[in-house]
């Protein structure tokens, strides 16, 4: 009966994952490998293609007749380039803020989460959301680039590296992490449980009532362990390897917050989305 409960929990979290997250790993991998019936994503590999594609950033569906619209930009001026970079950064922020809402909805669906102290719910989310967002990006990435805009656009890693500093340094650590993380070959059912484990971390600073959080996490951990054994019978020590990723994640998040602080100081026109601001304030 206990194993049945753990399987039911895994099923419940997977259903909530499908309900709340618009781009699953299964869909992302199909797009990246060209095995989808939809059109291939629009590729952004330089400033010109970013200008062509930017009107579709954060659109769930690109109107296909515009896909190869010719844009008369022979050379992009550097001040225009700065503007385009900032605009792109702002659309990344809007999508991130939307994704924070999605993670929050997912967290609320974890059995017992809404019964925790409200301050602790805020703390758990504050510390978990960027970690979860970084894990969510991994399936969208390969060594050459990343899907954005719900899989409508593929942006190359080289292009992201070519942006001006510190934008250029921002994504590289995420690519390095993702390429290694993807080698674990987790699927969407595994990811749903892993997200819940991350959210229910009882060691976040400032938690008021740790015991009920640890109890909830322990149950999800059992479910994850059982699920990984059944789903990946040939993958040795997968449970331990997945949990080890949580340590790497904390470093990436702390570096990310540092990048954003640098940006705030160096960019006069930078305004950070209020939700992201609230999350990053006094985070690390």
């Amino acid at each position: 009966p206990e194993a049945a409960d753990l399987r039911a929990l895994a099923k419940h979290l997977y259903e909530s994952y499908l309900k709340n997250f618009p781009l699953t790993k299964a869909k992302a991998r199909a797009i990246l490998s060209g095995k989808t019936s939809d059109n291939a994503p629009f590729v952004v590999h330089d400033m010109k293609s970013l200008l062509e594609g930017e009107q579709f950033i954060n659109c769930r569906q690109i109107p296909r007749q515009d896909h190869h619209r010719h844009l008369n930009v022979s050379s992009v001026q550097s001040d225009l380039q700065r503007e385009v970079e900032l605009r792109f950064f702002h659309s990344c922020q809007s999508r991130s803020a939307e994704a924070v809402s999605e993670v929050t909805e997912f967290a609320k669906s974890i059995p017992g989460f809404l019964n925790l102290d409200l301050n602790d719910q805020v703390t758990l989310l504050k510390y978990a959301v960027i970690e979860v967002l970084i894990i969510m990006m991994a399936p969208l990435m390969n060594k050459d680039g990343t899907l954005i805009s719900y899989g409508q656009i593929f942006m190359t890693r080289e292009f992201l590296k070519s942006l001006r500093k510190p934008f250029s340094d921002m994504m590289e650590p995420k690519f390095e992490f993702s390429v290694k993380f993807n080698m674990l070959e987790l699927d969407d059912t595994d990811m749903a449980l892993f997200f819940a484990v991350i959210i229910l971390s009882g060691d976040r600073p400032g938690l008021l009532n740790v015991k009920p959080i640890e109890d909830l996490q322990e149950n999800v951990l059992h479910s994850l362990e059982l699920h990984l054994k059944m789903n990946h019978p040939d993958s040795l020590h997968l449970f331990a390897k997945v949990l080890q990723k949580m340590t790497d994640l904390r470093q990436i998040v702390s570096d990310h917050v540092h990048f954003i602080q640098l940006l705030k100081e160096s960019e006069i026109n930078m305004c950070l989305h209020p939700l992201l601001q609230e999350i990053m304030k006094d985070l690390y």
Binding site: L118, L125, I279
Partner: peptide, 20 residues
């Protein structure tokens, strides 16, 4: 803490899916 995280707090309290 909820005072310093008004949007997050609101998202948590919303009964319908959040619109950001």
């Amino acid at each position: 803490l909820t005072e310093r995280h008004k949007i997050l707090h609101r998202l948590l309290q919303d009964s319908s899916p959040a619109d950001g």
